[in-house]
Simulated assay, not measured.
Amino acid sequence: METFKILNPGLLTTVQDLGRYGFQRYGVSASGVMDNFSAKVANKLVGNNENDAVLETTLKGIELEFLKDTVFAITGGDCQSTLNGKNIDLWKSYKATKGDILKMGICKSGLRNYLAFSGGIDVPLIMNSRSTNLKAKVGGYLGRKLMGGDVLKVFSNDNSSTLEFNRNLIPSYQKTLEIKVILGQQSDEFTDEGIKTFFNETYTISQESDRMGIRLASDSGATIKHKISADIISDGITFGAIQVPGSGQPIIMMADRQTTGGYTKIGNVISNDLSKLAQATPGTKIKFINYNLNDAINEIKNTENIINNPNSYIQELNSSENFIKKFYKIKLNGKIFDLSLERIE
C-alpha cells in the first residue's frame, strides 16, 4: 500500500541502502548512503534491519504527506523538523497517522539527513541493493532523485514501538575535522616531503564536492609531490580512497565513486571517519592523522557495538500497558554501569 507522497523533494533526495557491493568488477558503482552511522541508527529506531532502504536528503530536507499509519525516524544533520506543525526531535522515532504532514528544514550543522520508515522503502532490488545510482540511472525510485508528486511504498512491518537514541551518543558536526588515514595503495609513489606535506597541511573542502568525491585545497597552496608521476595503470577504488592527481591536491572518493581510477592513492580514510566526511559542508577544514589498521578495526567494533547495543536506545513500550522502560549508562567512582529504569502506573 502507498505510504507517503512527496510534496517538496528538497535539494537532493534519493533512496539508498548500505550499497551495491560485489559488482565493481563489472563497472557498477557501489553507491549507498554516505553516512552509514546515521542510516543504521535510523533503521534501528523504527525496528528495521540496518540495510533496509531509507531516504537520504542533502542540506535541505523534504516535505511529505503520510498516506497510511507508520513509524518513522530522522537522523543526521541538525535539521529542524515538524509533524503537523509541531517540532519533533531527530534521532527519535514517531508514530505518524494517515494525513499527517512532515516538514524538514535546512541543516544548521551537518549536511545530510536519513529518514527511515518501519518496514523499509519498497523499491526494486537491483544487484542485491535498492540504492540509487544517479549517473547510471539505476536503482532507488526510477533511478533518479525524488520529485514532487512521487508516491512511495514501504514493506509491511507490525512494529508499533518508538525509540530514542541516547543523546550522549549523537555525533556533533564540526567545521574543523581530524580525519584518520591509513597509508597504503600507492603511498610509495610519493616523496618523503610529499607525505609530510599531506599530514602537515590544513585542507579546505571545495564547493566542487558531491556524492562521488570530496575535493580539497591546501590552505597554504602547498602541493603533494610525486616521485615520478600522478598517473598509474587504473586499479580499483575503495570508499575513502584518497587520490592525488597531478595538481597535488587530494580528492577523497565517496559513495558514488567510479569503480577504477588512474591516479595515485596516498592512503585511505578509516571507515569510522567516513560518516564525518559525509556530513562535512564546503569550507570545512581538515587535518589528516596517520593511523594504523588495528586501531581502525577497534574503532569499527566500538561503533558497531554502539549501534547494536540495546542500552544505546531509550524504549517506550506499548502505551496500552502504560509503562515506560528506559536504559541508561551511569558513571560512579570512575566506573561505568548499565541501568534500566521502569515506571509502572
Rank of each mutant, 00 (worst) to 15 (best):
N311S: 04
K60Y: 09
F199D: 08
M147D: 12
S131T: 13
N333W: 06
P282E: 11
D89G: 03
F239Y: 15
Q249S: 12
V46C: 08
E56V: 02
D17R: 08
M254A: 06
A296T: 05
K331Q: 14
N305Q: 14
I324C: 10
S187Q: 11
I233P: 00
D256F: 05
P282G: 10
G105Y: 07
K301S: 13
I307Y: 11
L339K: 00
Y173W: 13
K301I: 14
I182S: 01
K92Y: 05
E342R: 12
I306C: 09
L55T: 05
R144L: 02
D219I: 13
C79G: 01
M104L: 10
N87D: 15
C79A: 03
D17A: 03
R25L: 12
D338S: 04
A116G: 02
N200H: 12
K145L: 00
Q174S: 13
I195T: 11
V154N: 03
Y263G: 00
G248C: 07
N302V: 12
S131Q: 04
G105H: 08
V71Q: 05
L183D: 05
I106K: 14
D89A: 14
L55K: 03
F117K: 00
S160H: 11
R215Q: 07
Q16K: 04
W91I: 03
G139T: 08
N84L: 05
N113E: 11
W91H: 08
K98H: 01
N159T: 14
Q315Y: 11
G19D: 06
D256C: 03
E63Y: 04
D150W: 07
N113C: 15
V15R: 01
N302F: 11
F66Q: 07
E201V: 10
T197Q: 09
S131H: 02
I121Q: 01
K227F: 03
M1Y: 09
I88C: 12
N318K: 10
P171F: 01
S38A: 15
K329W: 11
K331H: 12
K276F: 06
I232R: 00
S206D: 15
D235I: 07
K180H: 14
F23P: 07
N43K: 11
S209L: 06
K40N: 08
A217N: 13
M34Q: 14
N298C: 08
K137Q: 15
S209T: 14
N311E: 06
S31E: 04
D100Y: 00
M34A: 15
P310D: 08
N318L: 11
T14W: 08
I88E: 11
E201I: 08
F337M: 06
D69G: 14
Q80Y: 07
M1Q: 13
L216D: 04
L177H: 08
